[in-house]
Nucleic acid binder design. Structure first.
Lengths: 329, 329
DNA sequence: TTGAAAGCGCTAACAG
DNA sequence: CTGTTAGCGCTTTCAA
């Protein structure tokens, strides 16, 4: 529990000035190989690690990207993991701030601001546009997986949710399905687009749309599925809002002895970790998580380098991943 | 994107010295009510927020608790949420560092150290004891949900996993089950204790133990369940390592047309968010998450306040939560 | 009650 | 290539 060594300690031990140690530790050029080696040896010996905060206090850059995510969304977890990788290769660190039932988005972003993050990457934020705009006046703000009316200073990186829904419908129709229900996501980010994509694709095939209110949790899917079973006639296929919702749907069907995909086909959305589980084996519309993460960071860096755009929107194409929950009628 | 206001800006606007503003902002005593009001008004007007890092750089305390957690464990997510609440009421902030496939524990803890956290709270860490001991030499380390041979400087807060398994077995036996299999957690934290608890409880009831290798993911549970189905005879009840594992088990059973709890009973462990979902409705051994979180913080603070113990172990009692996946034979 | 001044650990000019 | 110097935004003596 001894005090952590500082630059000065390393300098003393290596017999050089602090400045030189600073240069060496940062890997900047301007130190002889021999000296550098001595310095690293000294640092190693006393277990020196640079103080991230002092460092950022001095250099006006924190090289910190603030990420706000939802604790209970596997899709966010996947995104966070991808972001770690991208950020690192861009020379940035991540500061995580979770949103949960007892911790709202405002609290989450404020913590990030107090940490002096250089930019904010918000995963599926629900905050009102006005608040995002206010944040964007202070630092670059990137919204991932939420559509937004063009907002000054806010960049959006999202999946083409409407096209994803279309792909799902096309797939189901090509399998012979005509009675396809969409369990929607209500007011969740992306839900409106998925509804729209579903509706227009159905229309294009000359089929009537059929919506059931859903949501983004297993519970929502389960409730919707129970509703479906209680109705006089049952569809032959279901497009769920997301994978979690689809999982709830699957569960209820299985419990009721309804075979999937034998009696009914189910399609999810996201291709989160969940869908890939062997025992779920869910046909789903895959969001390109690495690409979303990459673009989010790229956008953030672009703004940090002074690019002044009114607010960009980058749309990433989804792609259907056919697994085991869909079959020909 | 204007520069954030500093203490000096507030001081200038309020017509006082920075020192006074500092005192006021911290809510320390020594400022007249009138001045204080002026200061807060000025701060408010220019949107001042203290710089967390500069603050900690100066006062040798960061009031930061570093939390390492696994991105893909719902149980950890629940703990993190609970920790946020406890930390806040103790006047501390949380620094989150995630462990994922592409980001090992070492990386995670190092990030926390560089942030100058005052203590480390590790959720289900897998790191070797030697490493934990080394960390504990630098700062208080609290291991949550992992049993550890008494280690100098490391405090352990965990659930009585053995007793939890015992409760599950007692419950199943009281329902008339005698053929109870345990799908274990392999080398996962807590797995050994749960095995032991299961074995001794079975023994006490005069029943033979029966283990199936499992793990902590849905996949592990699903694989184990498939193995069970392939065997010549099937048990009447299963105790899974945790809720995720149990979910995988449930899924496979449902798919195979095996009614739960009609034909077989299933018990999980953790009472994570997952188990509580209406459609899963899993009978499970509940870990007392708020209490684990509370104790973790209490232990950390005790050490920060100079308490020097060789390494404590606090064991929290679990309690069986009977839901819908268990029934009388 | 208030202010001046010193420094936390580090980086960034600028000299030598 | 190396050292000196001056702060980053804040807290904290110590005087006034």
């Amino acid at each position: 529990m001894t005090k952590r060594p500082t630059l000065a300690d390393v300098a003393a031990r290596a017999g050089v000035s602090v400045a030189l140690v600073s240069i060496a530790m940062r890997g900047a050029k301007g130190v002889s190989a021999a000296t550098s080696e001595q310095i690293f040896k000294a640092a190693q010996e006393i277990g020196y690690r640079p103080d991230a905060r002092a460092r950022l206090l001095r250099s006006r850059r924190s090289r910190l990207l603030g990420v706000q995510f939802g604790l209970s969304y596997p899709f966010h977890a996947d995104l966070v993991e991808a972001l770690y990788a991208v950020a690192e290769s861009a020379g940035y660190q991540l500061a995580l701030s979770a949103v949960a039932a007892s911790r709202g988005e405002q609290r989450a972003t404020e913590a990030l601001l107090d940490d002096r993050c250089e930019a904010l990457i918000l995963l599926g934020p629900q905050a009102p546009v006005a608040r995002l705009e206010k944040l964007a006046a202070q630092l670059p703000v990137i919204c991932v997986a939420r559509r937004l009316p063009s907002t000054p200073g806010v960049d959006v990186v999202r999946t083409a949710d409407d096209d994803g829904a279309r792909q799902a419908v096309d797939h189901l129709v090509s399998l012979g399905h005509r009675d396809i229900v969409h369990i929607d996501g209500g007011r969740a980010p992306g839900a409106a687009d998925r509804r729209r994509g579903y509706r227009s694709a159905m229309h294009r095939h000359g089929l009537p749309s059929s919506f059931v209110p859903g949501g983004l949790t297993e519970q929502d899917g389960a409730a919707a599925a129970r509703g479906l079973l209680a109705a006089p006639s049952r569809p032959t296929a279901v497009l769920a809002f997301n994978d979690q919702c689809a999982t709830g749907v699957l569960d209820v069907f299985l419990r009721s002895g309804i075979g999937v995909p034998g009696q009914i086909s189910v399609v999810g959305f996201d291709d989160s970790h969940l869908a890939r589980l062997a025992h779920i084996n869910l046909t789903t519309v895959g969001q390109d998580i690495p690409r979303l993460a990459d673009l989010a960071v790229v956008r953030a860096l672009a703004r940090l380098e002074g690019q002044q755009t009114p607010g960009t929107e980058t749309v990433v194409a989804p792609h259907l991943i056919v697994r085991g929950t869909t079959a020909a009628l």
